[in-house]
Design a protein around this nucleic acid. Sequence first.
RNA 1: GCCGAUGUAGCUCAACGGUAGAGCACAGCUUUCGUAAAGCUGGGGUUGAGGGUUCAAAUCCCUCCAUCGGCUCCA
Length: 637
Amino acid sequence: MAKVTLPDGSILEIANGSTIEDLAREIGPGLAKAALAGRIDGRTVDLSSPIESDARIEIITAKDPEGIEIMRHSCAHVMAEAICRLWPQARLVYGPTVEDGFYYDIDLDEPIRPTDFERIEAEMQAIADAARPFVRTEMSRTEALTRMAGDKYKTDNIQRAQGDRISFYGHGDGFEDLCRGPHVPSTGRVGHFKIMSVAGAYWHGDATQKMLQRVYGTSWPDKKQLTEHLQRLEEARRRDHRVLGRQLDLFSFNEAGPGFAFMHAKGMIIWNEIVELWRSVHRRYGYEEIRTPIILNEELWHRSGHWDNYKENMYFTNVDDGAYAIKPMNCPGGCLVYKTRQHSYREFPLRVAELGLVHRHEASGVMHGLFRVRQFTQDDAHIFCTPDQIESEVVGVINLTFELYRTFGFDQFHIELSTKPEKHIGSDEIWETATNALEQALRHKGIDYTINEGDGAFYGPKIDFHVRDCLKRSWQLGTIQLDFSMPERFELVYTDSDNTEKTPVMIHRAILGSFERFLGILIEHYAGAMPMWLAPEQVRVLPISEKTNNYAATVRERLVEADLRAACDLSGEKIGAKIARGHADKLPYMLVVGPREAEAGTVNLRTRGRADNVDMRLDDFVEMGKNLIAQRRIEPV
RNA sequence: GCCGAUGUAGCUCAACGGUAGAGCACAGCUUUCGUAAAGCUGGGGUUGAGGGUUCAAAUCCCUCCAUCGGCUCCA
């Protein structure tokens, strides 16, 4: 008999060699039905795994996140079989789970099209309905290699696999795939699934390798969860900033300039409000602001290291027969400003900000609305300081960053520390010092972070800030980059207290990252319903009929005088239509006025997101609106 | 850049070898209205661009451009 300890601490005796499935049945028929896999002393295994000795055992169900992952992975196998049935020449490469689903990479010359999804799903359903058991076969690495001889993908997978025992999983009907497992007990347990999309993907993510077809699917324990997932995707589509940007007349793109955004009047209002906030916060944190040219002589970019490390992403031009480059970063220009006069340690730390317009030649396939463009405005700054000021300066930037993010209602962040990339300038010692300094600052603030090996900028290591929006999607915004190389290359100096010339440390940092991207993120975060202080049109006056147009105009004048962005709807529409339009335009407030209000000097207030409406004195509304704006409140009240 | 898909009126879409349509939007007129879309009339398209096949191309073929979904890359 083996003694098994269950997660609640209870101990059960079970015959040696019993499987986890047997154990689940022993505990209860409900659990036996729900069981997908098990854990023996923390190691996840198939339900059919025997319990050989005393152990801690857990039964994994779909309530366990890992249970869902196992289910999805099994679903990927079922999809692989379905595809192999439809395209016998398809060769399987690799099929892992991803967030909310799974994919399978397949080598197949004939393209799989979205119109094929239904056929694939039907095949999968047939396999699922057959409820065939998943069966594990183990063998030595050598045997596995012999078995898979001639299949370069599976041979490669075997060579990459860890351990000496290689396992295969079949689920009847001759289908088998190299796989570490574990799997659900039967093909009937792969959940409610749907094929989502197909896309090209390089083998091993290497652009020089063959492009495979990657078929994405999703799978959920029950039908309701699948439906909810599809609705979440719908919700994300509803918030797509590219769609909202057009609907709300905020910005546009044109074939005349792919990757170059046209910012419309309403978009500029939001933009300028962000800039205003940004400037006031930066003044408070002791920054000054400069502006440097967009086109600078090519020689400068040789000196900075951009020529050697960033050339592929740069635009070049000629001026009077001289070779020039369009700046992809602001730092070299900032260095030139620094060099225009002498500097003393007494003025350090010197915090110099720049809303810099940069151009980067991104590959044509990567552009994506405002999120990925070829021209954007960085909220950049360069801090020149002494080595012993690094930590406090980095801490200061972190404080500033969190303050700005919170103003927009982002309160979930995660932080990454990126280390030396292959393409870099500066010695290993410098890199180590710089990386340690960033790490120290993070530790000092007690901030959790993950390490991103080899992902730093070419001139120094960096800290990246990611925020989660209300749909739990993560966006990279800010970055802090430590740089010991650029100051040397530009021969930047300051006079230290001992009257010797020394090289300053340079900290590059951006908080919002790019104004364009940030605007796009805000639009999706708020679903286009911008808070009062950012809304292009804060309030609209809606007269019941033309008879009240004069009063409406008076009300609007009063609002404009109070510095509110207000408009009147003087169209000949009925009041219901005016309100419907106001909702479509996502206005924070609408003021309905008719003869009654004109008589009393009041307005009837409709608040975004609320069904009720309320009578109010105009002056009271003005007061309330001004307060909301002053506080930069996110929700209308 | 690579793989696949898609480009028809300002927007969303129909027509799928045989005279390019609808809804919304826009303009004019009627209605003067009390809380999520009144009615009538009208203007608007070398069907992304260029080439080819055909008596005939939005529709079939080729090249390019752009967009979308991914890969690689990234603020």
